[in-house]
Design a protein around this nucleic acid. Structure first.
Lengths: 197, 197
DNA sequence: GTCTATACACCGATAGAC
DNA sequence: GTCTATCGGTGTATAGAC
């Protein structure tokens, strides 16, 4: 007769509640802002009192940390899944990569601000939370190498181009396509400069 | 006998104190962060008690608003002065324009965050404070037209390229040159795409 | 694990004396 | 215009009942 230790059940339940708290935190961030998160707001949304959150997270920073890690992990999984469906030809491939990142970033402002902009005072992600972000960067470098883009300098330009388009879109035309539709042209510009086929 | 009304003296003094408060606010922002500004910190720096600031600004938002306006006005004056010394040839001219904006933005992180990034919770500049920002944008469009760049789309690409380089520089190599030195290449890329001479 | 209660140190903002 | 006093809100953290 198999007896599952209580510890597993408890750990599962604990993990489930942590996820509920994180979901509530994202909801709260969408209604106010990522920097304006309050523990009382989060607690209310999960039907708890504020101090009870400390049974699941050691601090508010720990909640931000978990959100940061979760967001980058989701993008990492997303990018890996999408990698299979990317076009084979260098230029269409580069455009598809760029649009994939762009769409993910633009889809969720507080998420993007937590991941890519330093808007939360005193927040520095832990090494553990930063790991998936580095994996995403490594994946991007690998994908660029696959296209024949190997120089650090070229990758730096690629990240600047993409980041610039995303920021302008979010700042000046949220919900629109004004910079989104410039991606193919900007990538073509970049590819021409690199002499890509 | 000319008698200057007391009102003028008082207005001058009032304006001088406003400037002192703004200077103190910038000092405070440099020591902590633009989002972490506190009225008590500002007040202490000008030798006041925190509530006394309300004799000069109606709210903390009003202080941010004045800082925002001041920062864009300074850049506007700066850009107009620099316009005389710009190279005549299109490409060197474009590079000089870009480097001028880049250097101004990168020189002062809290100023850049207030001007170009939305890091201050609930802060939206008033129409009055936003005016010099629009004048800067108009000046940029005018300068681009002078080089033969007339399409909205092309200006959008220019702003995205510049903003992307600035953000990457500040986020990933503050105080360095990693993205600064890419400006000539990125501008050349852009100019090639436009078919500029 | 969750609750109530409490303490501390901040914050922006307001009321009213001078 | 500046001050003191104070309010309600915030995050952090702990103690202790259940």
């Amino acid at each position: 007769m198999i007896v599952k230790p209580n510890r597993d059940r408890r750990a599962e339940r604990h993990e489930a509640i942590r996820r509920e708290i994180l979901d509530a935190a994202w909801d709260a961030a969408h209604e106010t802002s990522i920097a304006g998160l309050t523990l009382r707001d989060i607690a209310t949304r999960v039907g708890m009192q504020q101090p009870s959150l400390y049974s699941h997270f050691t601090s508010k920073q720990a909640i931000y940390d978990a959100m940061f890690k979760q967001a980058w992990q989701i993008y990492l999984d997303d990018a890996r899944s999408a990698a299979d469906a990317l076009p084979a030809e260098p230029r269409p491939r580069l455009i598809a990569m760029a649009e994939h990142y762009f769409d993910f970033a633009v889809a969720d402002l507080p998420r993007h601000q937590l991941m890519d902009v330093n808007v939360v005072p005193n927040f520095q992600p832990s090494a553990e939370a930063y790991a998936p972000a580095m994996q995403v960067y490594d994946l991007m470098l690998e994908q660029l190498r696959g296209i024949g883009i190997t120089r650090d300098e070229d990758a730096d330009i690629y990240t600047a181009l993409l980041g610039g388009l995303v920021n302008q879109q979010l700042a000046n035309d949220p919900g629109g396509q004004r910079w989104r539709r410039l991606i193919p042209r900007v990538i073509a510009m970049f590819a021409d400069d690199l002499g890509l086929p």
